[in-house]
Amino acid sequence: MLDILRFGLSAALTLAGLFVLLSGIVGIYRFQYSLSRIHAGALFDTAGIVLMLLGVIVALGFTLTSLKMLLIICLLWLASPVSSHLIGRMEITINDELEKDMMVLDNEMVRHEKEGD
């Protein structure tokens, strides 16, 4: 019974991780602007990989390998957000048309832009 529960939990975690990874990949390719892409990539790096590794840890049980995987999670949670932050800061520093790129266009504004100018 416990084994089945553990397997179910690990499978659920892995599937959730796969879903997050997939949405991250789709986001990286679909988004047009680099800051949005960073958002997708950071999601990929943190949530997706953590969910996958947690799934593996649950499947393995409490061993030395799962402890090492916890360390990997620590490293990733330290390194990935910091690198995303650096890329984002660089983008904000060097982009001259930041306001234009970051503008959120709703439908009315798009129509207005098409009609005017």
Partner: peptide, 13 residues
């Protein structure tokens, strides 16, 4: 010149 220098977050990490 425009590269972010002395980034506090990066330094702590």
């Amino acid at each position: 010149m425009y590269e972010p220098k002395d980034d506090l977050i990066l330094q702590r990490a």
